[in-house]
Design a protein around this nucleic acid. Structure first.
Lengths: 137, 137
DNA sequence: TCTCTTGTATTAGTTCAATAGTACAAAGGC
DNA sequence: GCCTTTGTACTATTGAACTAATACAAGAGA
């Protein structure tokens, strides 16, 4: 599993791990059922404290991305399950609400906002070929 | 100007001030050109240190919401000016990019996202009658 | 010019999130 | 049963964000 930490670029180490694992899973490079490195192993490789990795794994479990089995290791959850999708929609909905609130505060109407989203979406570099995204919805 | 601080509900005082002023401006209760209370006055009223209010005003100036004149006071900026709008769009664009990144990470495509935005937008309670939003765009 | 009122700058204290150090607990294989 | 490997729990340290105390600077108006 390819993870890289940039110390002191502002974003906490545990969050860097969380985000990169999320990305690996979203892009299909980490398949459902696959095992993540043990906490200590990853901690050693990244030169951080095991607790920091443990925290990242805990957040990932909370987010439904992985499942931990007490002494057997940590595994990628089945992301395509309806529950997982529902959870993800819940999170994105929160972000959308926040965005709408801010846009309203700035006198930017919904149509303009959606137009902006189309623009930025097209401007984004396309995902990797191996991504599983295209299979969903 | 009606501002209330709830001490220790987690969100920093200066941010509470920023948000409430933003809201007052967006809702039209604070019109462009109107003067905000002097830093010391508001600090006294809210029972906080003048520096805390000063920080809030600084953030508001950065956000283009208000303009400070060295010894004359702080005034609500003309929000309808093209420059101000450009600044606001810049900020919202950042938020949009972050949202798109997160959605992609969660295997939620742009169409689904836009659909969600429509839903949530309609679910939001309508703005106040006095808002100036309707005049723009 | 003087003085009052405005925002500004510098410094220090306090709180809290992030990380690390270290010891514990549980399950599986020999 | 014992040992290794897994995740867990507790405590301490550190650094950044927030707030405050206090002194400074500059413009408006009598």
């Amino acid at each position: 599993m390819q993870i890289h930490i940039s110390s002191h670029d502002g974003v906490p180490i545990y969050l860097q791990i969380v985000n990169q694992v999320k990305y690996l899973v979203a892009s299909g490079r980490l398949a459902a059922g696959e095992e993540l490195p043990p906490i200590r192993t990853l901690a050693e490789r990244l030169l951080v404290n095991p607790n920091t990795v443990a925290r990242a794994y805990r957040e990932l479990e909370l987010a439904g991305i992985v499942t931990k089995r007490r002494t057997a290791g940590t595994y990628v959850s089945d992301t395509t399950s309806p529950l997982a999708r529902r959870e993800r929609m819940k999170i994105v909905t929160e972000r959308v609400d926040a965005l709408l609130a801010e846009a309203r505060q700035m006198n930017i109407d919904t149509d303009t906002l959606i137009e902006l989203i189309h623009e930025r979406s097209e401007a984004m570099q396309p995902a990797e070929a191996g991504a599983s995204r295209s299979k969903e919805k």
